[in-house]
């Protein structure tokens, strides 16, 4: 089986930032996400209950934003870019790490900074595999970092 080769075009993508994404957190989006996940905490679904809470508004479940989740990040365009630069065509999610720094609620406006932290080749049970780590930092409208995410993406 062929070994994975890190092309010059892929090397050039390491450290590169994607265009800044701006995402507004809507009540309905929080409710639909919590329902899809099966999270029954009323802070994510009951507008009245959340309004009476110290937080004062619907709170998103941690992980509501992330990769590529709900924030309008076009994952397929991103994958096409990797493939055009020499990445193998098959792809699977490898895993993630989140650091939750401040809660995200309805009405928040988040700016997502997305950067390719590393691209490395390794042997996995999928065969020769390219592992891409993407770092995403979400900052809210008050200038506070809400979430730092690292996602690993496998191409094989």
């Amino acid at each position: 089986m062929a070994e994975f080769v890190l092309t010059e075009a892929l090397k050039k993508m390491i450290g590169k930032e994607e265009p800044l994404l701006i995402y507004k957190v809507e009540e309905g989006a929080i409710q639909r996400y919590a329902q899809a996940v099966g999270d029954s905490n009323p802070m994510h679904s009951d507008v009245e209950y959340a309004a009476q809470s110290p937080f004062g508004r619907l709170k998103s479940p941690p992980g509501f934003v992330g990769w590529p989740v709900t924030s309008g990040f076009d994952m397929f365009q991103f994958v096409e870019k990797l493939i055009a630069a020499g990445a193998p065509r098959g792809n699977l999610d490898g895993g993630m790490e989140y650091e939750f720094l401040s809660p995200i609620g309805a009405g928040d406006i988040l700016a997502a900074r997305i950067r390719i932290a590393s691209i490395v080749g390794k042997e996995t049970k999928l065969g020769p595999t390219m592992s891409t780590t993407v770092e995403i930092t979400y900052t809210n409208q008050r200038g506070a970092v809400a979430l730092k995410a690292r996602h690993t993406f496998l191409s094989f």
Partner: peptide
């Protein structure tokens, strides 16, 4: 995430979470 937030209750705070597939 749901496992941890249900367990920690309304007064708990999730600080970090990671997983691998």
């Amino acid at each position: 995430v749901n496992l941890m937030t249900d367990w920690m209750g309304q007064e708990g705070t999730l600080k970090r979470l990671s997983c691998r597939y």
